[in-house]
Lab assay of single mutants.
Amino acid sequence: QKPIVRVFLPNKQRTVVPARCGVTVRDSLKKALMMRGLIPECCAVYRIQDGEKKPIGWDTDISWLTGEELHVEVLE
């Protein structure tokens, strides 16, 4: 079983991306966001920890988040 990260996107959409070492959250999600007309710069990404949303940086190595759920939200 490959290491993955589940990602909840705006508009009730979601995707799953591989959690590859040395790849940033930005690079992992860029294609999924672009297909939906979004760019990382207009969004914020969060991980859910103890039921709370914790913001994470787009430059975080995605392999550190293996098995986690991330939420991407459009910044107002």
Rank of each mutant, 00 (worst) to 15 (best):
D50T: 04
R14V: 11
C21G: 13
E41G: 10
K12N: 12
W64A: 13
T24G: 04
C42D: 15
V16S: 06
T66C: 09
K54A: 07
V7G: 00
R6P: 03
I62W: 02
L75G: 14
T24E: 03
D61S: 04
K30E: 07
E68Q: 12
V23E: 07
L38V: 07
G51E: 10
L9T: 01
L38K: 03
D61Y: 09
P18Q: 13
P55V: 13
P3N: 15
D27T: 10
Y46W: 13
S63R: 06
H71E: 11
E76S: 12
A19M: 03
L70T: 04
K31M: 03
V7W: 00
C21Y: 11
K53S: 08
L65R: 11
E73W: 02
V74L: 14
Y46F: 15
V25W: 01
T24W: 01
N11Y: 07
A32M: 05
L9K: 00
P55C: 09
E73A: 08
P18N: 07
T66S: 10
L38H: 08
V72G: 00
K54Y: 07
D50V: 10
V17K: 01
E52A: 11
M34R: 15
L70S: 01
K30T: 09
R14I: 06
D59F: 04
T15K: 03
D27Y: 03
V17C: 06
E68Y: 06
P3M: 14
M35K: 15
V25E: 00
S63M: 04
A44M: 14
W58A: 03
R36A: 09
I48F: 14
P18V: 11
K2F: 15
V45W: 01
I48D: 11
K30N: 11
W58N: 02
I56G: 01
L29C: 06
K30G: 05
D50G: 07
A19H: 02
I56Y: 04
R36V: 04
N11T: 03
L9F: 10
T60G: 11
A19T: 06
L38M: 13
V17P: 00
D50H: 14
V7Y: 01
E41Y: 04
G22R: 04
E73I: 01
I48W: 12
E41W: 03
I4Y: 06
W58S: 02
V5G: 00
R14Y: 12
R20I: 06
L70P: 03
V16Y: 09
F8W: 09
I39L: 12
E73L: 04
S63Y: 13
M35P: 10
H71N: 09
G67H: 06
D61H: 10
E41V: 04
G22W: 02
L9V: 01
E41R: 09
I4P: 03
Y46Q: 12
D59I: 08
C43S: 10
T66I: 09
R36Q: 08
Q49I: 10
E69P: 08
F8V: 05
Y46K: 10
E76R: 09
L29A: 01
L9N: 00
V17E: 01
T15F: 09
K12S: 11
V7Q: 00
V45C: 12
V17M: 04
Y46E: 02
G57D: 07
P18L: 15
G51L: 09
P10R: 01
E68A: 12
C42L: 12
M35L: 14
T15W: 03
G67C: 06
L29H: 00
K53L: 09
T66E: 13
H71G: 08
V7D: 00
A19E: 01
V23M: 08
L9D: 00
G57M: 07
D61L: 06
P40M: 15
Q1E: 15
I4D: 05
L70F: 12
D59G: 07
P55W: 07
G67W: 07
G67D: 12
I39E: 15
L38F: 07
H71R: 08
E52H: 15
R14L: 10
E73V: 06
K31I: 02
P40D: 15
V17N: 01
G22Y: 04
I4V: 05
L9Y: 02
L38G: 03
